[in-house]
Design a protein around this nucleic acid. Structure first.
Lengths: 119, 119
DNA sequence: GTCCCACCTGGAGTGAGCTCCAGGTCAACC
DNA sequence: GGTTGACCTGGAGCTCACTCCAGGTGGGAC
């Protein structure tokens, strides 16, 4: 099981080091292990969890809800149905967002066409 | 040409009255006309522009860029090619956003499926 | 006349999500 | 032994986009 330095995790995940520390501070990331010098050494598991975080974040899930999800994960396997519920609800919102954005894109394209017609 | 009271515009556009005042203050909305008592009376044109604003905002355009667009509109017809460029660039970003969200949605759904398989 | 209500203004405050800073540690290289 | 560079901590500061507030006006219903 390999470990990752902060710089490697920044490279892998696209989060800044400050964001990683912030996520750890607020409990979105479990306490990351340290080496003898006190520097963070991330596990494969941390990096994979950060991938999930990125996905939820970039689809618009607020931190408070990601925290709820993190707590469910921490609480163990008996919370899996709750996690499913949470993710399904989020999936529904993402679906709506995409549909709305498609509609708005059509509006923008109509506007562009109109402008093209008058130049 | 009908006019709209603040309450009607709130109803029509979904923006709060504070947001409308804010948009006017920063110049995203042209100075709105007032009646004898100093109360805002929005025109059809204002409401339609607010529709455009909503569309751009909800697809993630920052206020600074909407302001640039508003200035182009204000500057007159010779800026139409610039407006097209701006909107096309935005359209491209919206397209990317949607594609990214679709990919992330697939990830979420995979996660849900996995959870379902272990319950 | 007085009450309420919708609205006005300028300016302060808020919440989310980071981002930056000062001052320090440790290991490695010259 | 000095310098560099990656990292550490706690806490302050920042950006964005609003949102709220205090104190006031004008018009209509009772």
């Amino acid at each position: 099981m390999s470990v990752y330095t902060p710089a490697e995790v920044v490279e892998e995940t696209g989060f800044s080091i400050d964001t990683l520390r912030y996520y750890e501070k607020i409990g979105l990331l479990d306490r990351v292990e340290r080496n003898a010098a006190g520097q963070r050494r991330f596990t494969e598991h941390d990096v994979s969890w950060l991938g999930t975080i990125r996905c939820l974040r970039d689809t618009g899930m607020p931190i408070a809800e990601m925290l709820r999800f993190a707590e469910l994960v921490r609480a163990g396997d008996h919370t899996i149905t709750d996690r499913i519920k949470l993710l399904e609800e989020h999936d529904r919102r993402v679906e709506e967002q995409i549909a709305q954005q498609r509609a708005q894109q059509r509006y923008i394209r109509t506007k562009i066409s109109y402008y093209r017609s008058v130049v």
